[in-house]
Amino acid sequence: MSIELQHVHFRYPDGTLANEDLNLVIHEGERIAIVGQNGAGKTTAVKLMNGLHKPTEGEVIINGINTRNKSTAQISGMVGYVFQNPDDQIFKNTVRDEVEFWSRYNKLDEKEIQSRAEWAAKLCDIEKYLDINPYEIPYSTKKFVSIAAVLTARNPYLILDEPTAGQDVAGVECLSKLLHYMEQDGKSVITITHDMEFVADNFKRVVVMAHGHIIADGTPAEIFAEESILSEAKIKKPQICELSTRLGLGNIMKIETLVNKL
């Protein structure tokens, strides 16, 4: 079971070629980070994975099903997508209604609706906001509301588009916890992020994009060791990695490893 991109090109109606010849296999249960500059085509690429976009050329195959022949609604049953901007996604008057929406729409029984909503709210640490209007809570917390709402569908694949943007220490910790939980649960999480410390701490596989292409696919240590990839994608090493490189100790990701070497 996997998400497969085979020679995928995507051109927006205005003619902009946003993705060119993407080839990628993401296995069920796998956790990957997608990094790269603004405008590199990251969001376009993940929208191809849940059927919001259909490839201009090439094929996107989700668990054996070609997205070309299915509606976005059909694909979204397999791949959940949390929008970059929560305001694009959230539309209910209370957090509870938002988090229960998917289950109600799909006519789950009342007990299941409650249990999924509570589970998702707890995982996203938003229980205390359940009776509040989503537009009255801070932007960074709203992001967790949009994540919780998608979690209730319990899709095998979950896409998070820049969940780390604007998060504080507690928010980043909550995301790490969520990634860990999803892995235990056998779910795949595909995360777009600019936070390289978050990448180094939480991911074993990193896909780097630049100018609409995938330019690298490897472990954080492999990616951060390739100066040409870093400069092409304009990404920076995490501080500890940068420090260890400057000290001539290679690409060390963890503080304790560096401390032990010195």
Binding site: N38, I235, K236
Partner: peptide, 11 residues
């Protein structure tokens, strides 16, 4: 928070 949506270079 002027850089929350920006890449490291833009930030």
């Amino acid at each position: 928070e002027p850089t929350s949506q920006l890449d490291p270079d833009g930030t």
